[in-house]
C-alpha cells in the first residue's frame, strides 16, 4: 500500500524486518540490481525476492501482488475521471495533486541522489544529463548511449578503486534518511 510511491521503504520493512526473507546484506544486493537495471525499483525488487524464494512462479506472484491492487484503483479512478474530466473541481483537485507531487519528487530525488550530490564528478554528470534532457530536449535513447557510457568509462575498473568508493552508491549501507526508514 505504498501511496505516492516510495515503495522501497515499505519493502525493506516487510522483507527484512517482518518476514525475514532477506537479511540486510541480501536486501542491499537486491537493491543494487534493481537500481542499475531499467524499470521500477519496487517491481524489480518484487521479481528478485520472489525469484530467490520460489523461482519463476514466486517472481510472477510477487509482481502481480505489487501491481494488481494499484491497477484496480487506477482503473476505477481513471474511469471516474473520464466521465467527469470537465468538472472544475476534479480538474483543480488533480492539479493540486500534481503540484504536491513536485514537492515529493524533489525530496525523493535529493534523497536517492544524496551521495551523488556530494561528489563533484557526479554533480557534473547529473547536471549535464538534466540540461540535455530538460533544456535541449535530447531524446532519452541518445542520452543513455552517450552520457551513460562516458560516465561508466569515468568509473572504469582501472581507476575505480579511488573514484568508485562504496559511498557513491545511492543506497549505501550507512545512515538512512527518515524517508527510507518508515
Amino acid at each position: 500500500m505504498s501511496f505516492g510511491g516510495g515503495a522501497v521503504a515499505y519493502l525493506r520493512e516487510y522483507i527484512v524486518r517482518q518476514e525475514g526473507w532477506l537479511d540486510d546484506e541480501g536486501f542491499l544486493g537486491a537493491m543494487e540490481i534493481s537500481e542499475t537495471l531499467p524499470g521500477l525499483n519496487a517491481v524489480n525488487m518484487a521479481i528478485i525476492v520472489g525469484d530467490n524464494l520460489r523461482g519463476i512462479m514466486g517472481a510472477a506472484v510477487s509482481v502481480l501482488g505489487m501491481l494488481l491492487p494499484g491497477s484496480i484503483v487506477v482503473m476505477v479512478l481513471g474511469i471516474l475521471w473520464q466521465s467527469n474530466h470537465q468538472n472544475l473541481n476534479v480538474k483543480q483537485f488533480l492539479l493540486g495533486i500534481a503540484a504536491a507531487a513536485v514537492g515529493l519528487l524533489t525530496t525523493v530525488t535529493l534523497q536517492i541522489g544524496r551521495r551523488q550530490f556530494r561528489q563533484l564528478p557526479d554533480v557534473a554528470i547529473v547536471f549535464v544529463t538534466f540540461v540535455a534532457v530538460s533544456i535541449f530536449k535530447v531524446p532519452l535513447p541518445f542520452i543513455l548511449l552517450t552520457i551513460g557510457p562516458v560516465a561508466v568509462w569515468f568509473y572504469r575498473p582501472s581507476i575505480a578503486k579511488e573514484r568508485a568508493a562504496d559511498e557513491h552508491l545511492p543506497f549505501h549501507r550507512g545512515a538512512r534518511h527518515h524517508l527510507f526508514r518508515h
Binding site: 536517492i112 557526479d122 575498473p157
Partner: peptide
C-alpha cells in the same frame, strides 16, 4: 565492470529523475 556500471549509471539516473520532476 559491474561496479563501474553501477557507479556510472547512478548519477545519470539522478539527472533523469531531476528532469522528470522538472517535467511535472
Amino acid at each position: 565492470w559491474r561496479v563501474s556500471i553501477q557507479r556510472g549509471l547512478a548519477p545519470v539516473a539522478i539527472g533523469l529523475m531531476l528532469s522528470g520532476t522538472y517535467a511535472i
